[in-house]
Amino acid sequence: MIVIGERINGMFKDMKAAIPAQDKATVQDLARRQLAAGARVLDVNVGPTSDDPVSAMKWLVETIREVTDCPLAIDSTKADAIRAGIGLAGPNSMLNSSPGDEAKLDLYMPLAAEFGCDIIALTIDEKGIPRDANGRMEIAMRIVERAMLNGVDLERIYIDPVIIPCNVPDAGHHPGEVLETIRQVKLISDPPPKTTLGLSNVSQGTSERHLINRTYLVMCLAAGLDSAIVDPLDTELMNAVTTAELLMNQSVYCDDFLRANRP
């Protein structure tokens, strides 16, 4: 699984303080620790910390670039912040993310083509999050169509079927619908798009966040999930990923597999 480390995000307490204070040490420490724990890509999100998200994004990317050349997932809802971040992050970056309505796709797909970067696209549109897998697949097909029209390589597309918290009333069917979407996305095209998931949302507001996160992640991996945005510092979660990959014969067993097979 391609692990996208979620911790450099202004929504977290430590980052909420670090970004306005321009505290490089905290950011760089989080970057190093996430990579050491198995992250292959680092998500970068300024969150609600700044009146000037473009400058904050630039500062974050430059700060991280002082310690690592790893791919960065430039995460914002603001196109100008994304453009600024991707321009600085360089090749192999990810655009995170485009909603699945036509207007937004026609804004972000050309940007992905221009920078030759990967792009995460969400199965959400102006009508919101679909109730079931069919609704999600309709949007997924639109995403693939707009990618092809804009000359974005399908292997660079990461479709996120958007999970909502499992404790939301009358939403208990969503985890199952997302699993079904993960399976069906692989049938859209050849080569198929990849899949990813902003995992932590599934446990938002629940009492057993870590347990729910890692249990659901293993279920998603079994359905074929390629990547997830997670907290790589959650050791139990990373152990569950390593074990799931072993059980799916994606890695070779040895007695020290937890250390040897860390993604």
Binding site: V252, Y253, C254, D255, D256, R259, A260
Partner: peptide, 10 residues
Amino acid sequence: DIQIQKQVNI
């Protein structure tokens, strides 16, 4: 034995 090979390497 591929598993033992990996363990020896570790």
